[in-house]
Design a protein around this nucleic acid. Sequence first.
DNA 1: CTGAAAGCGCTTACAG
DNA 2: CTGAAAGCGCTTACAG
Lengths: 370, 370
Amino acid sequence: MDGPPRRGAGSRTRRATLADVAREAGVSTAAASYGLNGLPGVSDESCARILAAAETLGFRPNSLARSLRKGKSQVLGLLLADIANPYYSEMASGVIAAATRRNHQVFLMHTGLNEELHAGAVAALLQHQCAGLLFTSAVEAGRPTFDELSDLAVPYVQVVRRLASLPADFVGIDDRSAAWEIADHVFQHGRTRPVILNGPAVSSASQERLAGYRAALEARSVTLAHPELVDGELSSESGRNRASMVLEAGEALPDVLICGNDMIALGALGAVTEHGLRTPEDIAIVGFDNMTFASAPLLGLTTVEVPRQAMGQAATELLFERMIDPSLPPRSVILPHRLMVRRTCGSHTSSDLRPGKGRISSRIHTPADG
Amino acid sequence: MDGPPRRGAGSRTRRATLADVAREAGVSTAAASYGLNGLPGVSDESCARILAAAETLGFRPNSLARSLRKGKSQVLGLLLADIANPYYSEMASGVIAAATRRNHQVFLMHTGLNEELHAGAVAALLQHQCAGLLFTSAVEAGRPTFDELSDLAVPYVQVVRRLASLPADFVGIDDRSAAWEIADHVFQHGRTRPVILNGPAVSSASQERLAGYRAALEARSVTLAHPELVDGELSSESGRNRASMVLEAGEALPDVLICGNDMIALGALGAVTEHGLRTPEDIAIVGFDNMTFASAPLLGLTTVEVPRQAMGQAATELLFERMIDPSLPPRSVILPHRLMVRRTCGSHTSSDLRPGKGRISSRIHTPADG
DNA sequence: CTGAAAGCGCTTACAG
DNA sequence: CTGAAAGCGCTTACAG
């Protein structure tokens, strides 16, 4: 009790267990458990002895045992297409922050570049008895897995992309409105010959963006050139390749490249520069996502800010709410976006980062909203 | 057996256990365990029945129970200062890839921006019985934690930064040589009035880089201006602020800013541009790390390639080896770096990415190497 | 307020 | 080749 520690740090390798603590404190393991968890049913005196014993022994409860017994672990599973992609890693940081705040850990799984849902990753997460799952790149191919999760009553949330007709929680932005705004911005600045270099059609976010672009085109009766290049990968290589095809097509050059994300825009900018053309004088360029490099000096990419970290946090909060009450109706949280006008379209200074003028909107949909 | 599945997907919520499988197959749980794990001691016929039963029931072994019983989990812990920072997230992707290859999962912990080792993060990892730990931002303040890990015989590896005098495995690059090379490159291109905007002195990597820069200066008998601005944060804000102070100091302007990483260089480039100066004509700029944005069109930052993903993989491999044989002597794996000459210093074209000419070196140190 | 005991779902000696 | 049983380290009714 108040003698010297029987076994201090620096001399042992076996980890102390609850039984060790109980023995040291002279109580039962039950009492030790109650005491350490601050539950009633143990006298103040015993509690003090238990806490002291735990301290002395450097006791760390084995969360495997605890989770096994309780039938639930304090672990969330996060499935990412590519963690090396800052888009996802920033979202992951929001998830980890929100999870940590509630004393949960996060398992990170890489689902691979094909962006199909790897059933194997989900299986691994289930075997670890994750309390809930977060999906970032849901595509139709993953539907059987989602059905199985519903079946097993495992709570999950979708972020960024959503499966049509899947009645599950979702966090994202209003991609369609944002796309409309940036396309309209382009037209307000006198551009009339747009080419759209969008992301893949399997992504619901890309679909929404395309719908927004098209709506803006129609509203101004603008004709789209090179419709065959609209769909493609969300990479700078894809942007560079498609932009090169446009520039080498030998037809009238476009005066703006509307890109489905900033990586595509970066590649497109490279192609434009390589062809000896200037941005924005000859060809304006706009992206989407507001990646860190978009605001780099000399670069100044006009784009749409997407609150990635906030999306990760909101998704995690939604997941916790669903874990607490699985009977909640499916909800969508739509976070605000923002038009970032910079050098590559619409800004007449070479410095960057003028406050966007897009409307900022945030709202929650429930089925009742229609 | 060949009748219809008793309980197919789509109708149940309780998860199948090994006991369920054993009952379904008409064997003991021991036999079921052996069968599923491919161990000898069960007839082919029984084995087939067991596998079929597991399939029918959608059995997923509970890894919590398995790990509890075996006393070891298939989980690695990765401590990152900031997962939203692409530098770390790319390394994390290497770790996850290597871990996945060996059927291990990765717990990601955020240790916070102060970059001190959060003992709490380590505690959480230990409670989950992690088989090994990977540290990316070890600083002296974390030493007690490392000592405790050694005490508990928990295997771990340091990446990027290392604690002086800690006899533990390490993966990194030869920061000192790389820094020497890029500084020498600068001087070869006729620059004579350098300012160094380095990272924080608490980072062993920053210390090494600084030593390399200084050695190159001394070799050419070049004088360093603004030594008071050498140490600072590894952020673009810090780069912008320090560069502004240099440009507004009213003394002879430098002709090159040697930056401790690409973020600092990006901020410095912004400051130079804002002050109406041109890069590289008026002031050259070099960075370190070769972040994705460094090769962006129009930007073209001269820097040093650091193989982040390979470092993550190598560290994980080292960790596995140590998990298998804890008695191995501490080892250091030094991966090759590469000078990337681009627009901001040394390249006379505006296009980027000329193959570096730095020597590429890779080697393994053991104490025996001296 | 306290203790003895069952049980979470596995694995693994140990007998048959 | 197979089965009965102990045990990993916790939590939680259940008796005293």
